[in-house]
Design a protein around this nucleic acid. Structure first.
Lengths: 335, 335
DNA sequence: CTGTTAGCGCGTTCAT
DNA sequence: ATGAACGCGCTAACAG
């Protein structure tokens, strides 16, 4: 591989001049030399060495993105937004996946610190576990002490820049919208009992019912994924009582629930209404189409990068609201 | 940020010793010193500088993955497989997205070359455009000349390691399976006319019909995504004739087609059978469930990394077969 | 506008 | 088993 020095020699100029023309310095270089350097670089197939640049500059151009599962469209959409934003900044994304294991989250932050990533974005719900949280915080602290910028997409429990989806509020609004359609008796497919996102959404939903003077929802817990929704829905069917409307705390769970209901001969929305949360694009062609709370996932990813890069010590917090989207999976209660 | 030298000084040992204990050298270090170094490193919050390591070693631990669109579950699944494999090798993935623009593909390879990525994996169909292909090949050549390893997932047109899905064969098998159900008159939602994957699948399908002595399928082109399938399906409806079964060259297009058919009152599979290709997991809950050709997407991603890392000059090629999965979106022709 | 030179943090000979 | 010293490729003063 040709080095800058090779190019400089080949062009008959100094190292510094070659550096100035090839790698964005603000300094000016005469047209003749610039020409010579450029053609030498082309001829030799010169490519900068980013590692050397990082070392010399003391700053890399990578941003780390930590998500839980790339095959979950929720995270894919967020990562996509982050990648596009990084792209606009001329930065490169190294993407890490935790497989929903908080330990891996910590390890990834360490790795990204080693890369001297300019920023680290962490997406995914925090777990209500103080000890693992403390260790993550510690790892983030050493990263930030070294000048690293951090933003999370989710709960603001790390003292970092935060893009906070209004989970509680969105679920609250959803409950109000569903009650307005005449529903009085609800169930919640509530996700894992220790996942903050799931908790917030379930609580927001319940609190709206309470404000409306309705009975608290039946709550069934389950994993935060498609199969969790399926299982929870099956469990619900065994004890449904007079429930007319089911709120799943995310679309992926709602998808599983839909399948479970169908397999058990329960027709949505005729026999039971169903709502989700997130508005995952690739799920828009489900039948019936899912009523949900739309979150601007890609924008959340790019916003997180902006927040992280703007981090000047006083972490900013940006809330993003969700909008209730009524589709075919719910119907008014008649009579 | 603490450097190795800081740690060495703090532990009262030489730089070399500190390096040996902290960063996997094969050399042995006495237990006492090892202990001291480790506790100093912990106390100072030392984290290796990957850039410095890369420079000193002359090799990075990043692998580049180039895909077209992260929100397309096909690519997300492949990238997921690649990330898991990289993880097992202790490597880190920088993920680049082309937005289906071949120019971006070239730029990304250059960027990854700059990172001195140990391997570059490129997923996504080649386009039948010689000039852009030549330029991509040229960029890959300078990367490979510098010792970079490359593997593509798709057509073997770059002279690199290749994970080749058996598109032609899978589509052929699908046609045979559908004909066995009694279908005699087919249409193909064929994707863009210059996309090799789309071409191979459409041709494989047609060639089976020909072998079976059936009429060639009606062909309608469209973008390789959900909306392309939707549009193509609409077009097809205007000229359908006696077609009883539609083959979309991928599941995402089939999803769009399903929506188009439904909106136009055409019931699948009652009025029309529909098949796709890929077996995207997140689409398995569509109703009716999609008949498709299953591809082991995650494995293709990890296989690509293996191929790339094994690259010793003579690029290997690994074909991966697809398996026809019959589901509810097709039904036998009765009478 | 151009050239010289001193590091950036670490791996790795080569001595000891 | 341990340490001293050089070099990886590049940027950024500084000098001219």
């Amino acid at each position: 591989m040709a080095t800058l020095e090779d190019v400089a020699r080949h062009a008959g100029v100094s190292l510094a001049t070659a550096s100035r023309v090839l790698n964005g310095s603000t300094r000016q270089v005469g047209a003749a030399m610039r020409q010579r350097v450029e053609s030498s670089a082309a001829k030799l197939g010169y490519r900068v060495d980013a590692a050397a640049q990082t070392l010399a500059r003391g700053a890399s151009n990578v941003v780390g993105v930590v998500i839980q599962d790339l095959t979950d469209p929720y995270f894919a959409a967020i990562a996509d937004g982050a990648i596009r934003a990084a792209d606009r900044h001329g930065m490169v994304v190294t993407l890490g996946t935790t497989y929903r294991d908080p330990e891996r989250e910590i390890a990834l932050v360490a790795t990204l610190n080693a890369q001297r990533a300019r920023a680290v974005l962490i997406a995914g719900s925090r777990v209500a576990d103080e000890t693992v949280l403390r260790r993550l915080r510690a790892e983030l602290d050493v990263y930030r002490a070294a000048g690293g910028r951090v933003a999370v997409i989710g709960q603001d429990v790390l003292g970092t820049g935060t893009v906070a989806p209004l989970n509680r509020e969105g679920a609250y609004d959803m409950a109000v919208a569903l009650a307005r359609l005449g529903h009085r008796r609800f169930a919640t497919l509530a996700g894992p009992p220790n996942l903050l996102t799931a908790i917030d959404r379930a609580e927001g939903f319940a609190s709206a019912l309470s404000d409306l003077g309705l009975r608290p929802p039946l709550e069934v817990h389950g994993a935060f994924d498609r199969d969790g929704g399926y299982d929870a829905a099956c469990e619900l069917l065994a004890m449904r009582g007079d429930v007319t409307c089911v709120f799943a705390v995310n679309d992926v769970m709602a998808t599983g629930a839909l399948a479970a209901f169908r397999e058990n001969g329960v027709h949505v929305p005729h026999d039971l209404s169903l709502a989700g949360f997130d508005d995952i694009a690739s799920l828009r062609d489900l039948v019936p189409s899912l009523t949900t709370v739309r979150l601007p996932l890609a924008r959340m990813g790019s916003l997180a990068l902006d927040l992280a890069l703007a981090d000047d010590g006083v972490p900013r917090r940006e809330s993003v609201g969700g909008e209730v989207v009524l589709r075919d999976s719910v119907r008014p209660v008649t009579g």
